[in-house]
Design a protein around this nucleic acid. Structure first.
Lengths: 236, 236
DNA sequence: TGTACATCAGTGAACGCGCGTTCACTGATGTAC
DNA sequence: TGTACATCAGTGAACGCGCGTTCACTGATGTAC
C-alpha cells in the first residue's frame, strides 16, 4: 500500500510472475520452465517479462529462494504449534513438516533437493540463508535436547580428526554449543530425513509397496531419535 | 560374433546409441537429452535413429535400465572383493560402492534417484528388476547378519499393524526370512545411505562445509550399522 | 496549478536456434528357390 | 551358383513447434520547476 501506483503495480507483477512460475514448475518441472510461457500466463508479450527479470536463470533463482522460504515458513509454523520443551517432538514436527510440504509441492521440492537443473547454478549469496532454515531448526532441537541432558552419547562418540574442524565450523556458524558426536549424528539424522522424503516424493519405493507411508515415516523418525541419543523412555 | 553382419552391425549401433546417450546425459542432463543430438554424434541423420529406438522416451528407458545395471554391477563387483562372512563390512562395501558410482556418474545417478524427468514415466516391466539390485544386495547383508545372530533387536521392536503386511510382502518378494523390525530398520538404513549420497552428489552441504566427505560417509555408515542392531564390538 | 521532460511498462517484429516425428526414397544386405 | 525378391539401414526434406533474447517503438505515469 506504499509508494506510487507504478511501484505498487511492479510489486504486484513481481508476485504474479513468481506465482505463475511456481505453477509452471509444479506442472512441467524446472527444466521446462520458460519465460515465454510465464509471459503468456501473465497476459503479456514475452519481451515484457524482461522488465522484471533479467533472464530465465534469474527467474529460477527467484523460485529457489521462494521455495526455501515457503518450506522454512511451513517448518516454523509447525514448530510454533509444538511443545516448546520437548525437543524429540520438535524434531518429529520438523520432519513431518518437511515431508508434508514436499508431498504437496513435489516439483518445488525437486527444484531444491533433486537433480540440479542443467546449466543453472544457484547464486550462493541469495540462496544460502533461506536454504539453511530447516537445518537451523533441526540443530535447534538437537541443542535443546543436549542442554536438557536428554541425550546419551553413543558408544563410539569419537569423531575422526579430519572432520573435527568442519564440525566445529558448523556449530560455530549455526551458533550452538553441541559436542562433535552430536554434529555427526545430527547430520546423519538430517540426511536420513531428506532421504526418506526423497524416496517418497520421487517414488523410489515401488507403487503400492508401502501401504502406509506416513506410519513408515513415523517409525523412521523414531529410529532417528534413537540414533541421536534420545533414551527410549523419553521418546515415546 | 554371432549372426549375420547386419545383425552384428545392429547390435553395435545399439551399443553406440546407449554410449552416446550416456555421454549426453552426463553433460546436459536428462531433460536435455535429444534424439537429434544423439544422431549427430552417431554420424547419422536424425530420422535414422528411429530404426533403433521408437521414441525419445524409449531411449530414456534404455538409459535408465543401463544405469541401474551399471550401478548393480559396481555393487556386485565390490561385494565380490569383500569378506563373505562379515555382513557389517558387506553393508559398508555396498554403501561405498553406491557413493563412488554416484560421484563418478552424477547425471546417471540423478536420472535414477533424482527429480523425475518431466513427461517421462519409466515403464515398470523393464526397470523394476534392475532397479532393485542394490536393495537386494543390502537385504542380503541384513539377512546374513540376522542369521548369524549378530543383531540385537532394538528396544522398540514392535512394528505398527498398518506396516506389517507391507513388510511381510517385502521379505517375501526378496526371498529372505528377517523379522519385521529389521525390515523397518533396513529401510531406514537404505534411505539414509541414499540420502547421504544425494546430499553429496547434488551438493546440498554448502561447498567446502565438509572438508572430508568420504570420512563423513564412513561415520554415517557406522551409525547406520548401530541402527541396524550391530553390536559395537562387532562393527569395528 | 501547469508545463516540459524523464522514466518506465509493455508492444510487436525479428534473430537464430533446436526439437520430435513422419514420409517417400535409395541402395545395400540377406534369403528362398 | 545364380537369380528374383524381400528386408532393412540410412537419406533428405519437411511439418509444426517452442525457446531466449534483442531492439526500436508507443504511450502512460511520475517529477522538477
Amino acid at each position: 500500500m506504499t509508494g506510487t501506483p507504478r511501484e505498487r503495480a511492479r510489486v504486484q507483477t513481481m508476485a504474479d510472475i513468481t506465482r505463475i512460475g511456481r505453477e509452471h514448475l509444479a506442472i512441467h518441472g524446472a527444466a521446462a520452465l520458460s519465460l515465454r510461457a510465464v509471459a503468456r500466463d501473465l497476459g503479456v508479450v514475452s519481451s515484457a517479462v524482461y522488465r522484471y527479470v533479467r533472464s530465465r536463470d534469474e527467474l529460477l533463482t527467484l523460485l529457489v529462494v521462494d521455495g526455501y522460504n515457503d518450506l522454512g515458513d511451513a517448518v516454523d509454523a509447525a514448530l510454533a504449534g509444538a511443545p516448546a520443551d520437548d525437543p524429540a517432538e520438535r524434531f518429529r514436527v520438523i520432519g513431518r513438516a518437511v515431508r508434508t510440504w514436499a508431498l504437496a509441492e513435489p516439483a518445488r521440492y525437486g527444484l531444491l533437493f533433486g537433480t540440479p537443473v542443467p546449466g543453472y547454478d544457484a547464486p550462493r549469496e541469495q540462496t544460502t540463508i533461506p536454504g539453511t532454515r530447516v537445518i537451523v531448526a533441526m540443530v535447534g532441537a538437537y541443542a535443546q535436547a543436549y542442554a536438557a541432558g536428554l541425550l546419551t552419547p553413543p558408544p563410539d562418540a569419537e569423531v575422526p580428526d579430519s572432520l573435527r574442524d568442519s564440525f566445529a565450523a558448523i556449530s560455530a556458524e549455526l551458533g550452538v554449543q553441541i559436542p562433535d558426536w552430536l554434529v555427526g549424528r545430527g547430520i546423519s539424522a538430517w540426511v536420513a530425513v531428506f532421504g526418506a522424503v526423497n524416496f517418497e516424493v520421487f517414488d523410489q519405493y515401488g507403487k503400492g509397496t508401502i501401504a502406509d507411508p506416513e506410519r513408515l515415516f513415523e517409525t523412521h523418525l523414531a529410529t532417528l531419535l534413537e540414533l541421536l541419543g534420545f533414551r527410549c523412555g523419553e521418546v515415546g
